[in-house]
Design a binder for these strands. Structure first.
Lengths: 338, 338
DNA sequence: TTTTCATCTAAAAACGTTTAATTACGAAGA
DNA sequence: TCTTCGTAATTAAACGTTTTTAGATGAAAA
């Protein structure tokens, strides 16, 4: 019933607790016979060293704090999968908290976990935090000796390890790909124009246009606010109707679905008359009709990389600060010409 | 830099550590003046009692272990959201592990966390566990004093608290609803015929038929294996083609999309000629065309309920074992007649 | 026989807390 | 004056480990 401790084992064999501890750790100081019987007994009784006692002693919890804006998003869920898997492989547990895109929640979580619960943080900023640009909580944590590795939505000005996707190049390459397939009027629809990664994608779009010799036309850029996906239609439809577009790049799959509907409504065939490509990792793109060509982001790899970097830092294998860039992939499906 | 401890504060004021401890806990044994100056200082210096020391002393970690089959699933992600939110509100942290539907992983996780890392478990069984029907790891954990609350995929034979959805009634009501809208040939497509909840849904379907006086016809039941969603088409299309169906209930949204496509292919209009209703919480149903009518499962509420039950148990407010049933809701969208 | 050494085991301190038991000291009551 | 009491503080033990330091025993060396 009650958990077995080293003390109980000591009593069982009428030896001191230090003998038991050393026996279990296979110390040279302990005779073979003693070690054997103690180890055998411990195994039989399923003895497990108490986690809190160990953490207290070692001043290390083998636990990582993860702060993620939401889990109701395929990309972040993928990142989390990568984190959890890698952490477990390396013997680390994961305490996961959801910031819900709120700055206050983020601060609260960091506060709460800064009492020796965890060895380091893995986090992606809340939207609100990025908008109001308040990063003191991150700085404090790092200064207090709790390292942070940021992923996807990172704070430029904070000196810490980062893992990001190559949003810029992803967009650039996509424009080039579309141009190569014969598209000339390529639109860009963004649901994250206020976020850094949104800006990067736009920048990449412009760069792509320049690379292929197309003129940038601000009328072909549409910014919609995320969340109210039901309203996408009202904004997207006129945009498609009023511009004779032959390709659209979107920053997310949800709005891409709206775009596809609008294109069809506009009596254009996909991909014959107009192609659609979305930044996405979701399931929507795989089930839409036609199935969507996407710029895929390798969320799991991002999570795994971030976890690896943090753990190496915690185990003092690295001193330097790095920014790892995860490449995007163009996954060709049926919303683009063959 | 280094974390402030009670000892440091004691040194600062040249008092004993117990005085500091009592002062911080506002004990009557300590004079007002001493309490004030110590509390003030602690606040200024942002003192936080060490988590591991506390856990060791109190034999309670205020931490919950969550074992979830996957996060790449909107329903489970919703459940997790509910868990995390409720836990945090009640001052609990959450260590989250993904079983990936694997029995071995599940066992490994329970082993790993059974060293005083957590006070209790919140879990939904891996598919494999349910199939091979091996529940000893659950039993052991409970016997060793670590309570478990199971959600959604629960082990009938284990005596512990459970939170489930009313799959049976959800299906029954749906059949009745469809009948009332004039449907007579109602099919049932399952992606989880081997899981208990799958069986419940089938049972509910049959019951519904009986209630409205329709004959059960096994030809109208289609079982497909989950996962290979790309292959759904090959199985679903002939099924739709060969049976003159006027309504379909599916256990998931992914296969429902296939069903809808097959119906269209079969030159039937949705919902005029055939209606489709899926058990689902996902985003697919909200973005499909037509938008799907669903039996919605309240994942967040399920998570919140499970967390609440576990925490009450941990804080000794409850002794009894309960099974909480979360009702489903029929969310009417455009794949059913008005 | 005494010293020295090797081998094994035990005691004690430490990690950061809380709390029961104890002490110190001055004021009030006898 | 002596006892009793109340207040404010300290000491010590405990939670479960690891690790440093110390001790015991017996055999080999002198």
């Amino acid at each position: 019933m009650k958990k077995l401790t080293i003390k109980d084992i000591a009593k069982e064999f009428k030896v001191s607790i230090s003998t038991v501890s050393k026996a279990l750790n296979d110390s040279y100081e302990i005779s073979q016979s003693t070690k054997e019987k103690i180890q055998k007994y411990a195994k039989e009784q399923n003895y497990k060293p108490n986690f809190n006692a160990l953490s207290l002693k070692n001043r290390s919890t083998k636990t990582i704090g993860v702060i993620i804006p939401t889990m109701l998003n395929y990309f972040f869920a993928q990142v989390f999968k990568g984190i959890e898997k890698t952490a477990l492989e390396k013997g680390y547990k994961v305490i996961t908290c959801i910031s819900n895109e709120s700055y206050d929640k983020e601060v609260e979580i960091i506060e709460m976990l800064s009492n020796g619960s965890i060895d380091g943080f893995l986090l992606s900023m809340a939207k609100q935090t990025e908008l109001i640009h308040k990063f003191d909580h991150f700085k404090t944590s790092i200064e207090d000796g709790t390292p942070i590795v940021m992923f996807d939505r990172v704070a430029q000005s904070i000196a810490c390890d980062k893992v990001i996707t190559d949003d810029l190049e992803g967009a650039t390459k996509t424009v080039e790909y579309l141009y190569q397939k014969g598209h000339k009027k390529i639109a860009f629809v963004s649901t994250m124009s206020n976020l850094h990664i949104g800006k990067e994608r736009l920048k990449g779009y412009k760069e792509g246009l320049k690379n292929v010799g197309l003129q940038f036309n601000k009328d072909l850029v549409l910014n919609v606010v995320e969340q109210d996906y039901k309203k996408y239609k009202n904004i997207v439809r006129p945009f498609i109707k009023n511009n004779s577009i032959d390709a659209v790049i979107t920053t997310g799959e949800s709005v891409a679905v709206s775009v596809m509907k609008a294109i069809k409504k506009n009596a254009q065939k996909i991909p014959k008359d107009a192609a659609v490509i979305a930044f996405s990792n979701g399931i929507l793109s795989r089930h839409s009709s036609p199935k969507m060509t996407t710029i895929s982001q390798h969320g799991e790899q991002m999570g795994a990389t971030a976890a690896k970097i943090l753990i190496e830092k915690l185990e003092n294998k690295t001193k330097t600060i790095t920014t790892e860039i995860i490449k995007t992939d163009l996954v060709i499906r049926d919303s683009t010409r063959k």
